[in-house]
Amino acid sequence: MVATENRLTKALAGKRDLLAVYYTAGFPALNDTVAIGESLAENGVDIIEIGIPFSDPVADGPVIQASNKVALDNGMNLRTLLEQVKALRSKIETPIVLMGYFNPVLQFGVGRFCIAAADAGVDGLIIPDLPLTEYVELYKEKFEQHGLINISLISPTTSEERIRNIDDNSSGFIYAVSASSTTGAKKEFGDEQIEYFKRLQSMKLKNPFLIGFGISNASTFKTASQHGAGAIIGSAFIAMLQSSTDLKNDIRDFIKSIKTS
């Protein structure tokens, strides 16, 4: 059973316009992870998504790829990341979701990872290359035992039947990838994407969905929030961090610029 006090479940309940922000742990500097998370919480971000860097992030575009590489070169690893998350958790109540490729988790040991993540105060996990069947057969019980919510991706090419299946096996939110694409910021959504968001809305899923990939500004955030429970920003935020000379101020301005409306 998912522990009832899961912060993510609480944050999602009946809410709209949710803003989730992704950043890579250990980027730009190894020890920025905690400070960035704190700033996001202070500025009212609803869900914090922390990336576990990986050498071969195949679902990611150039911006997040580069942040992964910098983080690894900075010496980031899963053990350090979990320590940082624990430190962050002692300061904030915002839900924390870890997002990363399966191999580092597999090497850490999935069981050991679940224990450590729960202990660090993690609420959910997004593992894009862990297939649904594998998750359900081998890992679901372990995740749930430690109160960790698994978040699955869907994309415009995911069939209705499979979306229903994913919905049945989800308990937090569904991560609706906005287009058939790797991660990366785009300026506006096209008609096809809007159609897809409407289709998702009309499916009346039991879980809320948040839209991610390609959210970059107030306009895309607003559109996404009109259809889904909110949106996830990644590449645009990472690009900002990369050029920032004053993280605290720049993060505040960035979040303000998204949430203007």
Binding site: D56, L72, N103, P104, L106, Q107, F108
Partner: peptide, 21 residues
């Protein structure tokens, strides 16, 4: 190598203890 996941399959893979390729 040790068992790991890359390019869509679980197989023997040259990797660090942290699971980086």
């Amino acid at each position: 190598g040790k068992p790991g996941v890359l390019h869509g399959s679980k197989t023997l893979l040259m990797q660090t203890d942290d699971g980086q390729v």
